[in-house]
Design a protein around this nucleic acid. Structure first.
Lengths: 231, 231
DNA sequence: AATATAAGTGTTAAATTAACACATATTTTT
DNA sequence: AAAAATATGTGTTAATTTAACACTTATATT
């Protein structure tokens, strides 16, 4: 504590994290909001947020916040951007760092229902959240789209076994455009990260559609390597 | 100040900004460091950094810090990432948000020399900076490379008029690989953002090489639109 | 005169991307 | 029972993009 001359107590600020959680199911891309439990804006929808504590770094704070509000655990999150407008939080100066994650919605829904302050919304129909959260979400969506074209994606969002149709719909809902069935399948197969199973899924037709899963090793390798797709 | 129950004074932290300034000249890609003027690590090389003040947002802080340490003004900076390891600054808990900018080195060098605590280093020969600044720089370089392949780049780094050779060298030094002369020129010309001038530059050969400049409107449009290059 | 350095310019093969249609299985409707 | 609707599955071709590649001209240097 000898060097504090350049370090001015008065400039200390509160730092928060806000988590943008994307999920996916039959209906398309979803986003998870919580009902804010305290004033101001109590009762309104909000990203999962909370304050950074002295004993943790930002990633730890994001993990803790997500867990405490939703019960979700072991979710890999990625830091996105820091928001620092002076009045962004009307109560006191707060800087917020956004994190985002993709999760397999079905896998986690049971846990989620216990704490029902959290709720999934179809991405296109989500209510306007508080503060600058809408801005955060827009940036996250741009990031998600970029990721979809440069790294394999789906392992975190789809059930373990999935059909080509689901995979294609996932990409369509992220990129917000229709994709050609044959081209999509050919393209995705060229990545060589899928394993075709014997099993068929019969929920959407009696003929059944073959199920696939990711070859996790190849998937991770491809993730590190990256690519440059047009879809 | 009625709602402070959830807002805990004790969790306030100092927030800093650190600026990664890239430049370019005949020798290649450069990075700007300052000699740190206070303890700890006084006299060591460091990114331009300083603390966020109560009355400014992060972008403003970055602008102010850059100006006060180097005299550089009107530099567009882009936020990169926030660093929050508890002990990243040995004096006190500090979160640092990195910003990066590309500047035309020659254009600004005069101003710079006035305050000679700042110094350019060839990117490959730069000394190891303090704290986690090296990490910040690595992330900035990755970002810079990505940008080079998805958005036109050079307006901020090159002199107003430049030769194809300089442009190619810029890309080579950012991407850290040799590029084929003909392919590079064809590719870049296909963007349709360059204007070929009558003038020649004779500094590197008596034959002279034609000078080009950017068509600023087309450049900015292309920047918004983006692309997806392999070079 | 020979050699070296820089500028400038196009063609071709390979790879990737985009466009496109029909057959099969089954259920639903008429 | 026939017709229509929904879902699965599969390949070819043209267009575009990328990668590989070599010689000519101008000038200075030896």
């Amino acid at each position: 504590m000898t060097y504090l001359n350049h370090y001015n107590e008065e400039d200390k600020v509160l730092v928060a994290v806000d988590c943008i959680i994307f999920g996916f199911d039959e209906e398309g891309l979803k986003i998870l909001f919580v009902k804010r439990g305290f004033e101001p804006e109590k009762g309104k929808w909000s990203l999962m947020g909370g304050f950074l504590k002295r004993e943790e770094n930002l990633a730890e704070a994001a993990t803790r916040v997500l867990f405490s509000l939703t019960g979700l655990q072991d979710i890999y999150m990625e830091q996105l951007y820091s928001y620092s407008e002076i009045d962004r939080d009307p109560v006191t100066r707060t800087i917020s760092v956004s994190y985002f994650a993709l999760i397999n919605k079905n896998k986690y829904d049971l846990k989620l229902n216990i704490k029902n302050e959290a709720q999934w919304f179809k991405f296109s129909e989500a209510p306007l959240p508080i503060f600058d959260h809408q801005q955060m979400i827009e940036k996250a969506l741009i990031r998600l789209r970029r990721k979809a074209l440069s790294t394999p994606l789906g392992f975190e969002l789809l059930p373990e076994k999935f059909t080509m149709r689901q995979l294609k719909r996932l990409y369509e809902s992220i990129l917000n455009q229709k994709l050609d069935k044959r081209n999509f399948i050919n393209k995705f197969n060229s990545l060589d990260i899928l394993v075709k199973l014997e099993e068929k899924d019969k929920t959407s037709s009696k003929k059944g559609a073959f199920l696939y899963k990711f070859d996790e090793k190849k998937y991770q390798l491809k993730k590190e390597e990256g690519f440059n797709f047009k879809l």
